[in-house]
Amino acid sequence: MPDGFSQRIIYIIQNYWLSFLKGAGVTMVIAVISTAFGCLIGFAVGIVQSIPINKNEHIVKRILLKTVRFILGAYVEIFRGTPMMVQSMFIYYGIPLIFGIHLEMWPAALIIVSVNTGAYMAETVRGGILSIDKGQTEGAKAIGMTHFQTMVNVILPQALRNIIPQIGNNLIINIKDTCVLSVIGTIELFYTTKGIAGAYYTYFESFTITMVIYFILTFACSRLLRIWENKLEGAETYDLATTDTLAHTSGLAGIPKNLVEEYDNRESL
């Protein structure tokens, strides 16, 4: 082991770059997959939580809805109100005891982070749904849309604008917080670094490298997400449809020519 801070860092990188890379890879895979699953959980919970309970509905349906709502509410509160490190131990050692199945490290890691993210996303989605004007829901109800159709076609596409920044936040939080999975033995970036640092007692040097890696990962992700957000903002202008543009409008390509001419020639009211 050479003397001097920068020489040591170079030495560690030369010898252990592959381990760092693998650790960072595991961290990213867990963070990305779990954020995606967490979003799915969050959307599902958010949609179910926002089903209105109507007094006119059948009593069985009402009781069922209230029960489901209570369970989902408890899930959200419990997983937002306890540390993920404790949840990791709870799930990793609890599931085999309760269900009598052996839980591998990978599924355990993914379940823990997904379920945790889902709890946060559920609140975000619920807030996003509530932020949309009630008139939008009424407009959808008035043409006979079901709750699910209303959510998927009208409310969520509008709420997404408020939800996407939070998806990004959760991804970045997950990149950092996967390090708590080291308590169940997941060999991600933090666990890897601990091993390397312990070998030659180079904690400062090894964790300097890891700090830089974490920062590069989160910074790159937040930049990429910003670009994605800007793309989603969409076009702010529109073209008046004339016979020409009408024919080219993708959605209208199938409209018969005589219909287009009819509208073109006809006087409006």
Partner: peptide
């Protein structure tokens, strides 16, 4: 989505009524 009409048929009907209310030029707005 609700009446499960054919998309083309729905568009034709929409164009008919949008023309009627004088809003056909604005279909992309």
């Amino acid at each position: 989505k609700v009446l499960k009409n054919d998309k083309k048929e729905a568009q034709e009907r929409a164009m008919h009524f949008l023309t009627k209310v004088g809003m056909a030029p604005y279909i992309n707005a």
